[in-house]
């Protein structure tokens, strides 16, 4: 496939997005300074939103940008500002510390096992597609089949808001 065709260009963009996702994840997992780790996390989620675009769902890509990049990363930035961890101290000061090589080996083991499993399994193609999974179909699903779960997750979010307020308020010095 030539790079000058639309499909070839799309393939190139996919490779770029996959590289951005992985590079951001590596930055998020391994930099010493935590603000850089959050920036890497935002980069990784931006790449992942592009990957979701390739999976035929721009709606989920938009939600990925809004919720992960817009809300979760900002929440973590607030946690860093309030707790001020600064530079992470190395693992050398601790007798029971897990060495970095062991962490990398374990992560590589998990990833390699999953890759071997994904490549060696015979994935059966679907017998029929019921719909194309457009935003209209997702909306219909949310208010019909999944309406109960939709209501339950709103309760979970309400509990999270109240619980976060209760946990963070306790111990505050009275003015």
């Amino acid at each position: 496939m030539s790079i000058m065709t639309p499909e070839g260009l799309a393939g190139l963009i996919f490779l770029f997005l996959a590289a951005v996702t992985l590079a951001g994840a590596l930055i998020a997992a391994s930099t010493v300074r935590l603000p850089r780790a959050v920036a890497g996390l935002a980069l990784s989620f931006t790449g992942l939103a592009g990957i979701f675009y390739f999976l035929n769902s721009p709606f989920v890509a938009l939600m990925e940008m809004l919720i992960y990049v817009g809300a979760v990363c900002v929440a973590i930035v607030f946690a860093i500002m309030m707790a001020d961890p600064g530079v992470e101290k190395g693992a050398s000061s601790r007798a029971t510390a897990i060495p970095a090589g062991f962490s990398a080996a374990l992560g590589a083991l998990f990833a390699a096992g999953l890759i071997v499993l994904a490549r060696n399994t015979m994935w059966p193609p679907p017998a029929a597609r019921l719909n194309d999974g457009s935003v209209i179909q997702v909306g219909h699903g949310l208010i019909t089949t999944y309406s109960m779960v939709f209501e339950l997750i709103s309760i979970v979010l309400l509990m999270a808001i109240i619980g976060a307020l209760v946990l963070a308020r306790k111990g505050r010095d009275p003015e």
């Binding site: 996702t21 590596l26 998020a28 997992a29 992942l48 992560g107 590589a108 083991l109």
Partner: peptide
């Protein structure tokens, strides 16, 4: 799988 492995590593 690679994302998961990086997450476990971190």
């Amino acid at each position: 799988a690679l994302l998961f492995g990086v997450g476990i590593y971190g």
